[in-house]
Design a binder for these strands. Structure first.
Length: 496
RNA sequence: GGGCCGGUGGGGUAGCUUGGUAACCUUCAGCGUUUGGGACGCUGUACCCCCGGUUCAAAUCCGGGCCGGCCCA
């Protein structure tokens, strides 16, 4: 008995979140640590999550005018230097290639920390007239940012997988539409696929992407009260177009400078997914991403083995026919209890238990991963029923995450209360803000929390939150920190 | 960036204080018996993180490094 725990999760999500997370990632076979600090190896089960996420997002991109392409891993130093904000913003964390074989290179090559500086010059080449616009390129790639922080698989690694979209537009409005389209798609990915509600907003001045006019993001609240920047979409204005000479001839034959955008979402989304839904039993996955949506565990003995297996395989075949990713766990050397635990650790959303009782009564016992709820369904309409169960699991996951978000947005109009509230509960604290960095700094120094977003409009507030009326209404129109007239509503939170 | 803790078969640990034979649980592979919440028996499986030092002798002591986790800025 003493050793049985070691196969499963031994750390507590609530009390030991960091170690729990590391254990889930490794024991559910999503990733391992690489030999060099800051890098991880993504294992097939982890990569499959990324692939399914990609499928969704990539499909939406293509439906909205984006084409995929691929640019080099290396960027010549002279290219990187053409946009001064990029240089300043990323310089401390760029990895450089200085040698090819035994010979020193004439020009150092940066390992891309982001690709504006190599993609924009080509957009410049390829755009001649207004008829070439808008131009929308995306690439699925990895980038390297040499930060000296501790490794957290999917959340913080020196190299990470992401997609980066780069677009050019004839007008400012065109670029704005683009920025919002991508932000909406990121929100949709989180909410409809990952079952994680997000807040949408823009970043304060100092936290913008280097060189951007506006940086927008979707933010997700983790169960430990910290906010994760889930995806970003930048309006770059004309600064990149000017730096890299993206110009075009308009309808009146005048030369114009384009407006550009860029937007990215990384595998940090997987980190948020794991952190949000998983529990002390292991990984929990929403049906849309799960490598197996349904696992069938047959329960038999010597007498009924054949009937049970027959019955189970027929159901498996029927589900597969219906487009469900189903796995029949027919391993003879493991007993059912072991299989239950193992598939729970692996996060499979729905389990079918099929034994002598089910065969006899022409039924299936259906169990939901998130809460262990058990329902007996008729064999006859199992293919329809399974869709409902998958939806039900999604709804449970979303509801739990939404509850966490709604309960943890608080309105505060006193500085000390901001500090106290964040210290005690974590989560988001919204407060009127004059827009001055110094006022944010005053809070940041004391509680290690910063402004993670300024909502763009009221829609940034989740619907359920509106019911909760009075506690969330802000009375004051003065900056909580300095008393000057407030320009915006700031959301403070601790971050990853 | 500062501090603390850790690294021993695939996973989890003991051994380190007091230097000398690496022990236990589990997984894994094979065979047999089992099978409604982590079954059982037998058999098999070791670069003690790396480099250097001290020593007749280092998992153990010393120095440096690498990797991970936690706390603080």
């Amino acid at each position: 008995m003493s050793g049985e725990q070691e196969l499963g999760i031994t750390e507590s999500k609530e009390y030991n979140t960091g170690e729990w997370y590391a254990e889930v990632v490794q024991k559910a076979k999503l990733a391992d640590y690489a030999p060099m600090g800051g890098f991880i190896v993504t294992r097939p089960r982890g990569y499959e999550l990324w692939e399914r996420l990609q499928d969704h997002l990539d499909g939406w991109f293509k439906e909205t005018g984006v084409t995929n392409s691929y640019f080099p891993l290396f960027i010549p130093e002279s290219y990187l230097e053409q946009e001064k904000d990029i240089v300043e913003g990323f310089d401390p964390e760029v990895a450089w290639v200085t040698h090819g074989g035994h010979d020193e290179l004439e020009e150092r090559l940066a390992v891309r920390p982001t690709s504006e500086s190599i993609i924009t010059p080509f957009i410049s080449d390829w755009v001649r007239s207004h008829r070439d616009l808008p131009m929308r390129l995306n690439q699925w790639a990895s980038v390297v940012r040499w930060e000296a922080t501790e490794t957290k698989p999917f959340f913080r690694t020196k190299e990470f997988l992401w997609q980066e979209g780069h677009t050019a537009h004839a007008t400012n409005e065109g670029a704005w539409d683009e920025v919002m389209t991508r932000l909406d798609q990121y929100a949709k990915l989180y909410e409809d696929v990952l079952a994680i509600p997000v807040l949408r907003g823009s970043k304060p001045e100092h936290d913008k992407f280097p060189g951007a006019d506006t940086t927008t993001s979707v933010e997700a609240l983790m169960p430990d009260g910290k906010s994760v920047q889930g995806g970003t979409s930048h309006h770059l204005g004309q600064s990149f177009a000017e730096a890299y000479d993206v110009t075009f001839t308009d309808e009146d034959e005048d030369e114009q400078t384009a407006y550009t955008t860029s937007w990215g979402l990384s595998w940090r989304a997987l980190g948020a997914l794991i952190m949000t839904h998983s529990d002390d039993q292991g990984l929990v996955l929403p049906p849309a991403l799960a490598p197996e949506q349904v696992v069938i565990v047959p329960i038999y003995n010597d007498e009924n083995r054949e009937e049970v297996m027959q019955y189970s395989s027929e159901i498996a075949a029927e589900l597969q026919e219906a487009g469900v990713r189903v796995h029949l766990d027919d391993r003879d050397e493991r007993n059912p209890g072991f299989k239950f635990n193992e598939w729970e650790l692996n996060g499979v959303p729905v389990r079918f238990e099929i034994g002598g009782y089910e065969v006899e009564d022409e039924e299936v016992t259906v169990v939901h991963r998130p809460d262990g709820e058990e329902v007996v369904e008729d064999r006859a309409d199992i293919a329809d029923a399974v869709e409902e169960h998958l939806d039900a699991v999604f709804d449970k996951l979303y509801a739990a995450a939404e509850e966490n978000l709604v309960e943890n947005v608080r309105a505060v109009e006193d500085v000390n209360e901001i500090l106290g509230t964040i210290g005690q509960h974590g989560g988001y604290v919204k407060t009127p803000w004059c827009g001055d960095d110094a006022c944010e700094e005053a809070v940041k120094e004391k509680v290690h929390a910063e402004i993670v977003l300024v909502p763009m409009d009221d829609e940034a507030v989740p619907e359920a939150q509106l019911d909760d009326g009075e506690a969330l209404e802000l009375e004051s129109d003065e900056c909580t920190m300095c008393g000057e007239p407030a320009e915006e509503i700031a959301y403070f939170a601790k971050t990853y």
